[in-house]
Design a binder for these strands. Structure first.
Lengths: 360, 360
DNA sequence: GTGAAAGCGCTAACAG
DNA sequence: CTGTTAGCGCTTTCAC
């Protein structure tokens, strides 16, 4: 590289070269540099980069070419400061969550289409949501998308006064937060009907604790069991959406000697933990026990896992999250909306009819 | 939002209170607002928020209090634009990689201590590293930390001319990129010596393909085997650091009927995939085959997995990455440095002495 | 300690 | 299509 590009008024009309000075290597090229190189005004370059009408196709091309040559790229900080919008969406995620990874990946694609960029901020054990959100705010994101936020409704209520907020996977009734999530009730019914349809009656639920969607899934499980006349078989095992809690549940079940014929887990991670632990203990899946998860994370489809699960439409959730955020920017006074997506049952290898010898 | 705030001269020395006015809800408070509220100049507020000397303790307190009351937080875009440094580190990661998650978590803590913020940008199948890096550049990050980048050396060579770059886990000899990684050679020796020490001779290696560190691990495996006089037993199974490739390797081994007494995997993910597949096929670990991974991701320590592995010091790697980046900012002309961290063998349940009946 | 003034690189509104 | 003129909210001299 080692560019010794001339900045600013280089090649100015006055023709006094001494007024221009060589840019020290390391200076970031500006719009001015591009303009000078093409021989147009800075404003025109701005027009080109914003993609608004006002520049001829040929000018546009020359500007873009010159920019590429000197390695120019618009400065987001300056753009943000000058315009009221940063064209950046802030996303808070849990960096260890692979379902969030799926969502983020899809959101990148979605945001790009509407000319938006994403900045990610992680929520972690050592980093509270409040701090993660604060960072996003500092970056002047136009809107925030929170993935399964475990924040208080009060915090969100204040937050949403300052910036549009979309929550994915968790509802905040009574606040102005926009919501996108999966139809939890239908999802649970899909799972349980599949189990019931193959003859299961002794179906337990592995709970998700404080995780996103847990409350709805737990309630829907209870409702469906009651509706099927199986109120006596309702059994909710404590869990928290981690593999460890799934494994723990397996051990507890084994220790108690009361293994149900089927288990509906609140998410895939805990289902996989359960699967691994129970398999190692010699219990066969699905022959001895059927297992069904929730989310359809990448791991679930692996050849050696083949977990039957309820898929959440990550691409759809991502699309809706971006759409709601952008819409809210255009019309801040819209009433809070929620976008509910359809789940899909993915039948793989961990579910089958119960053993014939099971007395019920 | 309808803010009709009057900017500029609020609360001036002329003592006309009517020139100050309450900030309407919806407008983001500025330094000016804080200054007006406390009755000081904007510059002083700036001094307080930058944490530089120049304000008395009492003033400092009053400013901070006023800022908290009106919900002010410094605008990063403005700060970035005005100063040469943004105090933001850009981090590129693979959002599906849980080891990256560990690193990011540790980096947040580390960066905070030196007054830096992190912005994350994901590399994904649908989003090339080049694009992820571009976004970071647009945000005017002071320096970039790339986690296991799979970019070409040429791209990095150009990149590092524009901004300090630290690569974690992958070396780029001949470029000015700073490196932090684990002592791969020692790590592999740790793993193999453990296996050799318990009597294994037929030790295969599950390769990591193009993944970070794979080349070094593969070579170190070969070297160590040769040094132990086991050149005949050198066997490298194709893999790519995913669970699926581990499972595939297991199936292939089984099909060929040539199962070694021990397997050293290039990372934990592939080791876990292998573990799951081979266990399901009825092969017992560690009785029939010992297995050792690399990284020590969160999953490895779970009760039902208990994978013996070589731990990479994620906290140390994170610390060094941040340190190198900051140092480079202060002294751009420093020669490229590399920081190599010590690995640690974590012996869990997947390794044991080989079966006595194995003829070798 | 404090205040005034000049930008940072861009957008936006308008007159040519 | 083009150039001009103001800022955006902050940092950074530099005088007081």
């Amino acid at each position: 590289m080692g560019g010794d590009h001339v900045k600013g008024r280089g090649g100015g009309a006055d023709g006094t070269p001494e007024s221009a000075e060589p840019s020290p290597n390391g200076r970031r090229p500006t719009m001015e540099d591009v303009a000078a190189r093409v021989g147009v005004s800075r404003a025109l370059v701005s027009v080109v980069f914003r993609g608004v009408p006002g520049a001829s196709a040929s000018t546009r091309e020359r500007v873009l070419a010159a920019a590429a040559e000197i390695g120019y790229r618009p400065d987001l900080a300056a753009r943000t400061l000058a315009s009221s919008r940063s064209r950046v969406l802030g996303v808070m995620l849990t960096v260890h969550n692979t379902f969030h990874a799926d969502l983020v990946e899809a959101m990148y694609a979605e945001a790009e289409q509407v000319g938006y960029d994403l900045v990610l901020s992680a929520h972690a054990p050592t980093r509270h949501s409040e701090k993660a959100v604060g960072a996003l705010l500092g970056h002047r994101c136009d809107a925030l998308v929170l993935l399964g936020p475990e924040t208080s409704a009060g915090f969100l209520e204040e937050l949403v006064e300052r910036v549009p907020v979309v929550s994915v996977g968790r509802r905040f009734p009574g606040t102005r937060v926009d919501i996108v999530n999966t139809a939890e009730g239908r999802a649970v019914r899909l799972a349980l009907d599949h189990l019931l349809g193959t003859g299961h009656r002794d179906i337990a639920h592995l709970d998700g604790g404080g995780g996103a969607g847990s409350v709805e899934r737990r309630r829907a499980y209870r409702d469906r069991m009651r509706a099927a006349g199986l109120a006596d078989h309702i059994r909710v095992l404590p869990g928290d959406h981690t593999e460890a809690s799934g494994a723990e549940a397996a051990h507890r079940l084994l220790a108690e000697g009361r293994v149900p014929t089927a288990l509906f887990a609140s998410n895939d991670r805990s289902a996989i933990g359960f699967l691994d632990a129970i398999t190692r203990a010699g219990v066969r899946v699905p022959q001895d026990i059927s297992l069904i998860g929730y989310d359809d994370i990448p791991l679930a489809g692996l050849a050696h896992i083949q977990l039957t699960t309820v898929r959440q439409d990550s691409v759809g959730l991502a699309r809706e999250a971006v759409r709601l955020a952008i819409e809210r920017l255009d019309r801040p006074s819209l009433p809070p909306r929620s976008s509910v997506l359809e789940p899909e049952l993915i039948v793989r290898g961990t579910t089958a009819a119960p053993r014939a010898d099971v007395d019920d």
